[in-house]
Design a protein around this nucleic acid. Structure first.
Lengths: 109, 109
DNA sequence: ACCATATGTAAGTGATAGCTTACCGTAAGC
DNA sequence: GCTTACGGTAAGCTATCACTTACATATGGT
């Protein structure tokens, strides 16, 4: 599953900055690096991680490499989180009800 | 905002394992550690990170500390991803249209 | 052909993150 | 009160990660 790589990729602040920069539309590597406090090779390495997580795509255009956000990675993350949502709310509701009933220390399976 | 901490927290495999273990309902620290290949103190440290990211809650119950998933952190993540979704799809559509017009050295996929 | 532009890759380095063991505080049972 | 169970904290170690500079590759223009 790719959501693992996506989570790890978006954990880094610099990669998030790159990702959010791409939010507005495609951008070349040099342009991205120009707006960040790190070197251009660092951006290249980060873009590689983002690409392996299906969060961005590259597209050569002459000598330049245009990067843009790939919806796949984002969707994988969303699916993962949504899969939690149901069970979590359910368990949460059960816990609240159990608390309300006062038999707080059950759950010894 | 807490989505940054949440992303960093869920980036670690062990923390994800803990989080997914809590999916089924509240659990004590020792029980969590028993099902994992790491020591109990390690689990405590991970739980702290998860708690600071608003992803879990603790609730003392005698000598035991029961942890459960907190919906807040998950929701923060969802909001963050959703904020991307609109702009990303928009930018993606624009890019596709630009390609369709034969603008660039197009590649239609 | 030659040079400039734009980018990926390699090698090395310092900081951080996750793990361990040892220790300390606290709540329950005798 | 003493002992046992449970869990958080401290200190230290190792591996990984993000960054740097130097080098390699490829496309375009002249």
């Amino acid at each position: 599953m790719t959501y693992e790589r996506a989570l790890q990729a978006l954990a880094d602040p610099t990669r998030r900055a790159i990702f959010e920069r791409l939010r507005g539309g495609p951008c070349a590597v040099g342009e991205i690096a120009a707006g960040l406090p790190v070197s251009r090779p660092a951006v290249s390495q980060h873009l590689r991680v983002l690409r392996e997580a299906d969060l961005v795509r590259e597209r050569r255009q002459g000598t330049r490499n245009m990067y843009s956000v790939a919806p796949e990675g984002l969707d994988a993350l969303r699916v993962y989180l949504d899969s939690f949502w149901g069970e979590v709310l359910d368990a949460f509701k059960v816990a609240v009800e159990r608390e309300a009933k006062g038999d707080a220390h059950a759950r010894t399976d």
